[in-house]
């Protein structure tokens, strides 16, 4: 009886290992297949298929990596954020609004250097804009709710620049890290969220 249980347990472990090996093998086949099948088009170079460490870890753990790995890599992302040299985080909320609504950037049909923030694709912001996505949380009345403090301005600057410094496998792109948005554009987006006069805070 005991022997049967031990044997069943052993079989389960062996099956588990085989499953793990299978998954790794499928992953390798998938990567080889993609590298064979994709080609460069426009600004979308084929080397975009190569994963950095963060992308590799998030893929490997299904966006839920072990806590120690998560903390270590979040610190790496945090350290890579370049804060504005002039110490100012706020730009123009009106420009920020246009950037928030602009869904262009980084596809093979986009020109280099022409990017918006695609904010409305995933977030609710101003109550006047009714076409918004919900992949990310609502940011309605963001500054009004959280407080119009410099600390919060800095937080938004960092979060837009590199969301992965806060949640390693966040769905949100690293807009600064990927050079999608310039320092000036990120400041404008910060103002859109943090300026008391911005419609987001009305």
């Amino acid at each position: 009886m005991n022997r049967a249980i031990v044997f069943a347990g052993l079989a389960a472990v062996v099956a588990g290992c085989a499953g793990m090996q299978g998954e790794t093998a499928y992953h390798e086949q998938a990567v080889a297949m993609m590298k064979r099948d994709f080609h460069t088009r426009g600004i979308a170079q084929v080397d975009r298929l190569n994963q950095d460490e963060l992308q590799r870890v998030c893929t490997q753990y299904g966006d839920h990596p072990p806590a120690d790995v998560e903390k270590r890599l979040e610190a790496v992302e945090m350290a890579s954020i370049k804060l504005p040299a002039d110490g100012k985080y706020m730009g123009d909320w009106k420009r920020g609004q246009r950037i928030a609504a602009d869904g262009r950037g980084m596809t093979w049909s986009d020109k280099p250097g022409v990017s918006g923030g695609s904010c409305y694709n995933c977030h609710q912001l101003s109550p006047r804009e009714t076409s918004f996505g919900n992949v990310g949380p609502s940011l309605r009345a963001f500054g009004k709710t959280r407080g119009f403090t410099v600390e919060n301005q800095k937080y938004v600057y960092q979060r837009v620049s590199n969301s992965k410094a806060f949640v390693l496998c966040s769905a949100m792109p690293r807009f600064g890290h990927s050079s999608t948005l310039t320092e000036e554009q990120i400041k404008d987006v910060v103002a859109y969220l943090m300026d008391p006069n911005s419609p987001v805070n009305q």
Partner: peptide
């Protein structure tokens, strides 16, 4: 099917999307 699933969950590119 399993290879397709791996492609579906593969995060890469400038916006880290799968």
């Amino acid at each position: 099917y399993e290879i397709g699933k791996q492609i579906f969950f593969y995060r890469a590119g400038p916006w880290d999307f799968a």
